[in-house]
Simulated scan of single mutants.
Amino acid sequence: MNAPLVGIMTSKKNEYSLAGNLNLFISIQKELLLRGARSFVFSFEDVKDDARILGYIFSVDKQEWHRKMMPLPDIVYNRIPFRHSEQTTQFQKCVQVFKDHHIPMFNPGFIDKYDLFLLLSSSKKLKKYLPETILIDSVDTLEKFYLDHNDIYIKPRMLSKGKNIYRLNRDLILELHNQKITFSNFNDFWSEFGEMFCGGFIAQPTIQPTIVEGNRFDFRILSHWSEVEKNYKVTGIGIRATNEFNLTTHLINGGFIMPYEKIQEPKHDRFISALVKEVGRILSKQLGFWGEFSIDAGVDTEGNYVIYEVNSKPMSFDEEEIERKRIIYLCDLFFQLTGWED
């Protein structure tokens, strides 16, 4: 077959099935078949010592998965959904196999939120958009930060999608989505939550977001590398909005979709275009090739842009047009990075 074989790497859900975004995997397989190529999904645990892989191929005709022993792919797309999986010796051994056979792989892995802050802070272009961030390592560190800002967010270093995000406001009320706990003093708060937060969480000052029609909003920006342009480009921009009092704009936490056109301005376009180029440059320079990523960003009440998060393994976008472009650009990359003609 005069086309690349794409390996989509994930983890095992259990002994008999794989985890991950199966709809994404199927969409990639369908698009590749239209181009005369094919893909298979595999767990890093199933890469054999003889460089064969026990993988799964999706049959579009039968609408079912078939298990089959496969050769090494021409390119690997890392979609492992669990951070702990990438910390195993077996994962590192699998990555080494691909390196030994000169097989390109993207993306390298998950990004720790505090490491990301340090990384992006090294860029003069990005530093001004980053909220002050500390690693919670002691009661003194967090108490000083809280007294300096009076209103802070506490976020896990290693989770995404708005999970386990807390807000400690000026009245010492700790908020977690629909739950609120009031404390009489900081020591009482630390006695109950300090052990959980210490080491695995970061703190940032609460950003007062700009409000549109009674709602706050965030940019959800999807970007892909263009081998033709030799730069990162904007694939799509989604807007997630929510009541101004909600902790996050994530859909699973009560957020909703707003068309980008509703708030679009030339300055937003310029900011987003420059942002994806610089974030992509920093990531790939420091961590390895990044074929795609997404950015959560926003605007505060004074009109300043803020970077909230960079996602190394973007979830599917609910906007069909953006998700369709994503599949096309991914498959373009699979061909371009392996040197095959599409």
Rank of each mutant, 00 (worst) to 15 (best):
D171F: 10
K285V: 05
E15F: 15
M196W: 05
S85G: 10
T133F: 15
S316E: 08
E323N: 13
G109S: 12
S122R: 14
G288I: 08
Q92T: 02
G280P: 08
I53H: 12
K68F: 15
V97S: 14
K155P: 04
R270L: 07
S284G: 09
I181G: 14
L247I: 15
A51K: 12
F91K: 00
P205E: 12
T249A: 07
Q92I: 02
Q87A: 14
R157E: 01
R79I: 11
K163V: 06
L287P: 01
S39Q: 02
K125N: 12
L130C: 06
P131L: 07
P259A: 12
S273Y: 08
S273T: 14
Q264C: 15
Y16L: 11
V279T: 11
I103H: 04
Y232H: 09
S27T: 06
G194S: 01
Q92L: 11
P314K: 07
D74V: 01
R170P: 03
K180S: 13
K144N: 14
Y153A: 12
S184K: 11
G298Y: 04
I181H: 13
N231H: 03
H84T: 04
S191C: 05
N150P: 03
F197E: 00
D140V: 10
Y16Q: 09
S123F: 00
L147F: 14
D112E: 06
Q96V: 03
D61Q: 11
I211A: 08
S294D: 13
T88W: 01
Y146I: 07
T248L: 00
E227V: 08
R79D: 01
C198H: 09
L116I: 05
N2E: 11
Q179Y: 10
W340L: 08
P156S: 02
P266N: 05
A274R: 08
L118K: 08
S85E: 14
I257R: 05
I328A: 13
I134K: 00
L333C: 14
P4I: 05
L126R: 02
G55W: 04
R83C: 12
L118E: 12
L34V: 05
T235E: 10
L120P: 00
G36Y: 00
Y129T: 06
F317N: 13
D61S: 14
K124Q: 11
R38L: 06
E31Q: 13
F317P: 11
L172Y: 01
L54Y: 10
R52H: 13
A19W: 03
D300W: 06
T206G: 04
L18V: 11
I8Q: 03
D171M: 10
I207C: 14
L283R: 06
L337P: 01
P156W: 06
D148N: 14
